[in-house]
Design a protein around this nucleic acid. Sequence first.
DNA 1: CAATGTTTACGTCTTC
DNA 2: GAAGACGTAAACATTG
Length: 334
Amino acid sequence: MPRPGKSSYSDQKPPYSYISLTAMAIQHSAEKMLPLSDIYKFIMERFPYYREHTQRWQNSLRHNLSFNDCFIKIPRRPDQPGKGSFWALHPDCGDMFENGSFLRRRKRFKVLRAEHTHLHAGSTKGAPGAGPGGHLHPHHPHHPLSQFPPYGLGSAAAAAAAASTSGFKHPFAIENIIGRDYKGVLQAGGLPLASVMHHLGYPVPGQLGNVVSSVWPHVGVMDSVAAAAAAAAAAGVPVGPEYGAFGVPVKALCHSASQSLPAVPVPIKPTPSLPPVAPLPPTLTVPAAAQQPPAPSTVCPAAAASPAASLLEPTAPSAAESKGSSLHSVLVHS
DNA sequence: CAATGTTTACGTCTTC
DNA sequence: GAAGACGTAAACATTG
């Protein structure tokens, strides 16, 4: 089997799913999020196979972005106009891949949104029945976010918001990554979202109170994750034998099992436990981080130290600190 | 108008 | 064999 990062892939179809490829692209980006077009570029640059039949695979890829909860759509800031939104990985998506391999996932990542009936109709994701013509658009009068027409967030945002009221604080701070956008609801953290939004250049609606706000997720969340990955590596946690290169894993890159507190995970089978990782400071400094555009920080050791580096070529830094997160997610059988 | 995003449907393959 | 993951096609909506 050809190895990633080498020319050996030539025209062969890589053994990675679209979800994996997309995750790689996102992980590879400095800000841990990419617009669709850049995801395309990343894949085409590294996998010649995907330089053909673009219509086909790009359609599939878009399908995956929308369909899978592990990808979160992040609206552009007003001062960063452009087509389409940015896509990021859900911070809790780490356990998706078996042994951290980018190959077949062991379970699908799904955001838990059951108890948030008040947001029920707002989420198009997981809103079966909202077929063509039946979409409940954010601008729809009944959409929970409809009060923010100019910057109405996408359905994923609504989904994330809907999934975020458990009060659970994820070490990787969803607020930093993707979440802050969607987590006005997270006021549990006590963040002055209106203020944050103001800092970020977003209009601050009066009722912002308990609804979604739009913040920028630049902050890197991978530092601690990387640490976890490194620890895992040191501990000999197995990665895919064949594709160890990519074995790096989303798991290692964006999630630490040891830190994943009760994210209400519903593991299908036991995951090799990782050694404890230095806990993150519980401080909430979102506004500070948010005010700054992508704050480069450290290269993810996991990626750098791993063979995957050859492909992912971690060039930039993930950002700074992570904060508490209350994004409530769950890995479940679908 | 093209790119982007959402959803449904169906077939194949893998895992349990 | 059932269930789930994945790939693909397609219809349709939204957006710049």
